[in-house]
Simulated assay, not measured.
Amino acid sequence: MTDLENKAARQAAVIYTGISLGAVLLFLALTFLTGKTYTVVARVGGAVWVFILTLVVTMPIVIPKVKNKLMA
């Protein structure tokens, strides 16, 4: 891989990881704001699940967009 491809990969990783962490924070905020009592295991398990799913969904969307933007 060239330096430009490495830069695109790193930048894409930062973006989709940030999106996933934002989704986790939103999930955790919603679990506290609903007023229901959730166990710590439910909150942590849900947060991990949201992080993984969001990561899987955003990776194939973000990588080509960043790569096209930097390579153009």
Rank of each mutant, 00 (worst) to 15 (best):
V62D: 02
L33V: 08
V66R: 07
Y16F: 11
I19R: 11
L53N: 15
V44G: 10
L4T: 15
L55C: 09
R43S: 15
L53K: 03
W49K: 01
V40N: 04
A42I: 11
T54S: 14
I61F: 13
F32H: 04
Y16G: 11
K69D: 04
L55S: 09
T2A: 11
T54D: 04
L26W: 02
Y38Q: 07
I19H: 03
L21N: 06
M59K: 15
A8W: 10
I19V: 15
L4G: 06
L33C: 03
M59C: 05
P64Y: 04
E5W: 07
V14N: 07
F32V: 03
T17M: 10
M59E: 14
R10D: 12
I19T: 04
V62A: 10
P64I: 03
I15E: 03
T58A: 15
F27H: 07
V48N: 11
A12P: 11
I63M: 13
L26K: 02
G46R: 00
R10I: 14
T37D: 12
I61T: 03
A72P: 00
A47K: 05
F27P: 00
T31S: 15
G46Y: 01
D3Y: 04
I15M: 12
L28K: 00
A13T: 08
L25K: 00
V56Q: 15
W49Y: 06
L70W: 03
E5Y: 08
F27V: 07
D3M: 12
K65Y: 10
R43Q: 15
F27N: 01
G46N: 06
D3L: 10
L70Q: 15
V66Q: 02
K65I: 15
G46K: 10
G46T: 09
P64G: 09
K67A: 10
D3H: 07
I19M: 12
A72V: 11
V62Y: 07
K67E: 13
L25D: 01
G46P: 05
S20C: 02
D3E: 14
A9F: 06
A9Y: 11
K67I: 02
T37I: 02
V66S: 14
S20D: 05
M59P: 07
G22I: 02
L55V: 05
A42T: 14
T17E: 13
T31H: 12
A42F: 12
G22C: 08
I15W: 02
K7Q: 11
W49R: 06
A72Q: 03
T58Y: 06
P64Q: 03
V57R: 04
R10F: 09
A23H: 00
M59I: 12
V41Q: 06
G22W: 03
V24G: 06
Q11T: 06
S20H: 01
F51Y: 13
V57T: 10
T34I: 08
V14G: 05
F32P: 00
M71Y: 07
R10P: 01
L55A: 10
A72G: 14
V50L: 10
R43D: 14
Q11L: 13
T37H: 05
M59S: 13
I52Q: 11
W49G: 07
A29F: 03
K69W: 10
K36W: 09
A42P: 00
Y38M: 07
Y16L: 11
P64W: 04
F32M: 07
